[in-house]
């Protein structure tokens, strides 16, 4: 399996290789953060907004912590929270979407109308609304975003499952007397895996950007936890003094999403090719 992947990767276009490389670098940073980072996450090592030096590669932040260290820990915090949120959102969305498609009838009608209404409220506004009531803690953040985002996953998984459900082989299985769980897991899921995996990449990007935006607004991951969105917010004042280092965490966000997008594009291209032959 893994050696297959390496072989595929060798023949992949440069963009895809770049994407995979970016993702691996980020993962290493996230997993081994305490080993890589030169200082502790909240350790104050110098003055406010010090310039780049050998002591502190990217300089220091608004209260004198090492920016590079914060960046490494930020990878760990932001990526893991976004990842957990996306997983949760997919679990809810796929279960709902598949059930709606396979069972149909009023269950489908009911769930779909509900999701229609949920989706007609812009997700940022909805999130701000709920966070203002529940307050901003990490579990609340994960729960709220996962539930809101799962409506999008529901839409897609219902649509792709619908494409499969109308196929005769699903009808054949229904007429055989198979139960809903068999239909969902054995007939529908294997045939919707490709678009769902691609969507996972894209939704991860969306959730990741969304959490970063909330953090940037001061309503996401709370200090002193290192996180890229809040780092931009906290250090934005430096930009007006012509210091560009606060842009580094923002760039880190952008590069990861670009990397994931490149891999998703490659994946979509590959799976589309399989369908043709």
């Amino acid at each position: 399996m893994f050696s297959n992947f390496l072989k595929e990767l060798k023949n992949a276009p440069f963009a895809a290789q770049l994407g995979v490389f970016i993702i691996i670098v980020y993962l290493i940073a996230a997993i081994f953060a305490p080993l890589i980072a030169p200082y502790a996450e909240t350790e104050i090592i110098g003055d406010v907004w010090e310039e780049m030096s050998s002591k502190s590669w990217l300089g220091t932040d608004q209260i004198g912590r090492d920016l590079f260290t914060r960046l490494i820990y930020g990878a760990r915090n932001t990526i893991s929270i976004a990842f957990v949120t996306t997983i949760l959102s997919f679990f809810i969305g796929i279960c709902g979407g598949f059930m709606a498609a396979v069972i149909g009838g009023w269950i489908d009608q009911g769930m779909s109308r509900f999701v229609d209404i949920m989706m007609s409220i812009p997700i940022l506004i909805f999130a701000l609304m709920i966070l203002s009531v529940l307050g901003t803690s990490t579990p609340v953040l994960i729960g709220v975003i996962a539930v809101l985002d799962s409506t999008r996953v529901y839409r897609l998984s219902r649509a792709v499952a619908m494409d499969v459900v109308v196929m005769d082989f699903v009808e054949a299985a229904k007429l055989r007397g198979e139960n809903t769980w068999y239909l969902m897991s054995r007939e529908v899921l294997p045939n919707t895996l490709a678009p769902l995996v691609a969507e996972f990449g894209l939704r991860f990007c969306f959730v990741f950007l969304f959490i970063s935006s909330l953090s940037f607004l001061g309503l996401g991951i709370q200090p002193p936890t290192a996180d890229w969105g809040s780092m931009v917010r906290e250090n934005s004042g430096a930009i007006t003094f012509g210091i560009l280092t606060p842009l580094v965490p923002a760039a880190a966000i952008a590069i990861l999403t670009i990397g994931v997008n490149l891999v998703v594009d490659w994946f979509l291209h590959k799976t589309a090719g399989i369908k043709d032959s």
């Binding site: 005769d168 082989f169 007939e187 294997p190």
Partner: peptide, 9 residues
Amino acid sequence: YQMPDTALN
């Protein structure tokens, strides 16, 4: 079924 393509998973 009519379409063997869609009748087999």
